[in-house]
């Protein structure tokens, strides 16, 4: 649910060193229509030095931190930080999912980076790190919209009650369950009784 459609652009920067506050450029995401949720992602290849930093981050079980700067259609800016384990990013071969959460006015409330696949191990070893083949991020962007809350449905309830009363006046019965489903609680005791009587007769016959 969006009150009105709009567009945003997101500039992505990431930090590839632990305990460092410097973020380097990663890519740009353009969402032309928040309603449709389609996104255009441009992300250049990672350099060899960046890849080595990323592998070092994964070996240390550190967080891969991403900074997203959202630019709205009215020129306003908002900054978000999200993180995930660098190890998981490498195990997913740099495939990640960027979740963008919106409120009804189109304001971005949160951006989260995660991976779809479940990791094989919690921590990375040198062997796991060497399995990385990709040099470019492959990112899906998913939009989460707000939803309207329900309201107690008094009108619908009153209509339903009236409809049921009219149906009862017309003598209509709308229980469309099967015969067994309706009357199993009467059939089962009879069947049990017959079996027990049969067993008793057998004993009597001896």
């Amino acid at each position: 649910f969006l009150e009105h459609d709009s567009w945003i652009t997101v500039e992505l920067q990431h930090s590839l060193a632990a305990n460092s506050e410097s973020f380097s450029f990663r890519g740009n995401v353009t969402i032309p229509s928040l309603n449709s949720g389609l996104a255009n992602v441009e992300q250049p290849d990672l350099s060899t030095a960046d890849l080595d930093l990323l592998k070092k981050l994964a070996l240390g079980n550190e967080f891969y931190r991403l900074k997203a700067t959202v630019v709205y259609s009215n020129g306003a800016k908002a900054q978000f930080i999200t993180s995930n384990k660098a190890c998981r990013l490498l195990q997913a071969q740099l495939n990640d999912v960027l979740w963008v959460s919106l409120e009804p006015s189109g304001y971005v409330t949160g951006i989260t980076v995660s991976q779809d696949t479940a990791p094989a191990t919690i921590e990375c070893t040198q062997e796991d790190v060497n399995k990385l083949l990709e040099t470019q991020f492959s990112t899906d962007v998913l939009i989460r919209h707000a939803e309207l809350a329900p309201v107690p449905d008094t009108a619908g309830f009153i209509q339903k009650v009236e409809r049921e009363r009219e149906a009862r006046e017309r003598g209509e019965v709308r229980d469309n369950r099967g015969f067994f489903a309706k009357y199993w609680m009467y059939i089962v005791p009879v069947v049990l009784l017959v079996f027990i009587s049969g067993a008793t007769n057998q004993d009597g016959a001896k």
């Binding site: 999200t82 993180s83 995930n84 979740w99 919106l102 949160g110 995660s114 707000a146 309207l148 809350a149």
Partner: peptide, 23 residues
């Protein structure tokens, strides 16, 4: 307007958002 957000406070993911109006 009253907004409800369900947030995972470990990952920061906004899991669900719901809006009440005139509330």
């Amino acid at each position: 307007v009253l907004n409800l957000y369900l947030v995972d406070v470990v990952s920061g993911s906004v899991v669900f958002t719901m809006t009440h109006r005139k509330v």
